[in-house]
Amino acid sequence: MAFAAELLISFFLIVSGIFGFVGSFGLLKLSDPMSRMHAPTKATTLGVGGVLIASILHSVFVDHHLSLHELLITLFLFLTAPVSAHFIAKWHIHRHETPASLPDAGEDGVWATHDIEDDEDVAEMPR
C-alpha cells in the first residue's frame, strides 16, 4: 500500500517535472513572441497541477490527513494565467502589430488596442 502510494506520488511529480520543463523549453525554442506565450500558459498548468496533486496525495497517504489547500492554488492559477497572458498579448499588439497585420476586426472595424482616440499620452512617452 505504502509502495503504491509512493509510486503514484512519484508519477505525478515526474509528470509535473516534464511539463514544467517543456514550458520553459518552449520559451527558448519558439520563434515569435505570440507563439512563445503558448508554452508557459499551457504546459505550466499541468506542470504546477502535477505537483499539487502529488501534494494532496502525500498529505492523504503519508501524513494521514486531508489537505485541500492545493485546490485554491489551482483556482488562483486558472484565474491569473489567462489575465497575465492577455496583458502580454496586448503589449505585443501595441508595439509590434498594425491594424493591417491583424485580421479584419469585423463590424467594429478595429481591435481595442488600436482604438486610440488621440495620441497625446503616447507621444509624450520617453523613447
Binding site: 497572458a85 492577455h86 498579448a89 496586448k90 499588439i93 469585423g106 467594429d108 472595424g109 481591435w111
Partner: peptide
C-alpha cells in the same frame, strides 16, 4: 490564446 477584443466587443 486570446489576444484582444474588437473596439466595441463584438
Amino acid at each position: 490564446l486570446s489576444a484582444d477584443l474588437s473596439a466595441k466587443g463584438h
